[in-house]
Every structure is written in C-alpha cells, then in structure tokens.
Amino acid sequence: MTNTPTGADQVPAEHVIKAIPVRHYGRWVAAVVVVGLLVALIAAFANAKIDWSITGDYLFTSSMLQGAGNTLLISVCAMALGLLLGVVAAVMRLSHNPVTSTVAWGYIWLFRGTPVLVQLLIWWNLALIFPTMFGVSTNDLITPFMAALLGLGINEGAYMAEIVRAGIQSVDEGQTEAAHALGISRAKTMRRIVLPQAMRVIVPPSGNEFINMLKTSSLAYVVTYPELLTKAKDVYTGNLAVMELLFVACFWYLVLTTIFSVGQYYLERHYAKGSSRSLPPTPLQKIKKNLSFGRTR
C-alpha cells in the first residue's frame, strides 16, 4: 500500500515560504542614542565643580537620617489624614443631601484651588488672627509638626476626595441596588460592598499621591519642620556645600520613593486579582523580559 502525499509534500521546494525574523534596527539605534546621552550626562556631572566626597560623607550622618525619618513621618501622617478626609468628603459629595454635597464641593474647590505652600504659611501664622484656641495659646498649639500636618493633610484630602469619588462611581449601581433590596443599610453597603470593589480604581492614583506627598513634604521647611530639606539646608548654611547637600537630600528622596513605588506595585497587583485574567508581571519578571530586549521575534 502506497502512502498518499499530503498537500505540504506536493508543494515544490522552490515555492516553500521561508519565514525570516524581522530585524528591529530602530530599537538598536534608539538604545545607542539613549546610552550616548546618558554617558554624556554622567560625564558632565563627573567633571562639574562638585566635591562628591562631601556628598558621600553626609549620606548617612545622624542629621540626614533624622531628616529622612521626619520626612517619612509627616508624609505618612498627612496621607492618613488626607485619606480619612477624602473618604468622608467623597461620600458627602455623592450624598443626595444638598447641604452636605455642597459643603464637600466647597472644601474640594478651596483646597485644590490654592497652593499648598500658601496653606502651610496660613496655618503657621494662624496666631495672627486667632491668638488663642480652646483656651490655649495658638503659638503653643500650632507647632511646626502640626502646621505641616494640617497644611499637607487637609490639602491632600481634597485630592483624595476626587479619587475616592471616582472609585465609588466605578462600581456598578446594581451592586448597591441589590444590597438595598436585601435590607442592607447604606453605611454597611458602602463599607462592605462598594469600597472593597472600588479599591482597584482607588489604589493606583492613591499610591501616586503618597509618593507625591513624600516630595511635597519638602515644602514644610517654610514652617521650620525638621524634614530632609531643612536638615540639608542647616548643614550647607554652615559649610557652603550647597549642591553636595542637595544631592544628599535627592538620594534619600529617591530611596523613599523607590521603596514605596515597589510597595504600590504589589498592592495594585493584589487588587487586580479579580479584574484581570492574568496578573501583571512582577519587577523580577519585567527585568527578565527586558533582558531579552535585543532578541528578534
């Protein structure tokens, strides 16, 4: 019994299509240009009039470490206050009560519409219009930490209110209607059903806001709060190594933002479990993928 040749066997050899991988020359050109610019930038700073030994000497001094710790403290506290105010303001904004919704809108309008630096100065100089508060001298009540906390936290609350509101509105209204049909109260529906589902939308911009808060906390130097920039300023005022100490401050800002950026990524990955078929790659998986950058496909 003879074997019947298949359709592929019947095609002449000279007619068989040979697939040739596409060469991505543009990628290599772009990579060379970027690397060249990066090398030029590094060389410029290496040859600049900067005493890098001073930068290295002050990286881990107690003064700079204390400043980094104070920066982290005020950022976490201000973000916690902002998140609390944001959730309350978002719920008020979505309320059918015209009074509460208008008050929430006014709060967001006022604190988003004025610079945070101006707000910090207002809190710091509050004693000029209110010499005493609650029977206590305002100067004793509004310490540098309190002025920074109120200025940064209340301002952040206005931005968080819009983020939380967008997250709540992203949840299908049928969820709320079904909960009410089952006799679940509005407060419990919001706490147990709506907010957990809204977290997928709330977490990414909230993480970005916290990282921005870490950097914005440098404005607290105007109220003499001893954060990272203030500590660097105190040092370079004495030794006149301005740029060297500013680079020290930049180093610690980068360390803090990098740590929380990684944390934000894994938090987003956690809340993406119920919304995507496959989870986004981890940083290690991204690195492994980027190592195959030059391979043809």
Rank of each mutant, 00 (worst) to 15 (best):
V99R: 09
V262M: 13
K233M: 15
G36I: 06
T2A: 13
I154Q: 05
M243C: 02
D172G: 06
F130K: 11
A249P: 06
Q175L: 05
G174Q: 07
A179P: 01
V255S: 04
I20E: 14
F293Q: 13
E162H: 09
A89S: 08
Y225P: 00
I17A: 12
T258P: 02
L267A: 11
V35H: 10
L284F: 15
V35W: 10
V35C: 12
G26D: 02
F210S: 02
M213Q: 04
E177C: 12
M92R: 08
L228H: 02
F60M: 09
P115W: 01
L279R: 06
I108T: 08
R23T: 08
L214D: 04
F210N: 02
Q169W: 00
G174C: 00
F134E: 08
S275K: 13
Y236W: 09
V171E: 03
I163H: 10
S62R: 11
Y236P: 10
G69M: 12
G67H: 06
W52V: 02
L214F: 04
A198K: 09
E14S: 13
I17R: 13
N239R: 04
R277T: 14
A78S: 15
F134A: 11
G183R: 01
S261G: 12
N47D: 15
L219F: 14
R93V: 07
A40H: 04
L38G: 05
N70M: 07
I163P: 13
I211F: 04
G56V: 02
A89E: 01
G26A: 02
N97F: 10
G151L: 05
N208F: 13
S276P: 08
P21A: 10
R269M: 04
Y265P: 05
G106T: 12
M199H: 11
D57E: 15
R295P: 01
V248I: 09
V235W: 08
A80W: 02
L83Y: 12
C77K: 14
I142Q: 00
E162A: 05
A232F: 00
T189D: 01
N70H: 09
L240H: 12
T6F: 00
V29K: 10
F60C: 03
R297I: 10
M213S: 03
V171D: 03
L256H: 07
P204C: 03
E14V: 11
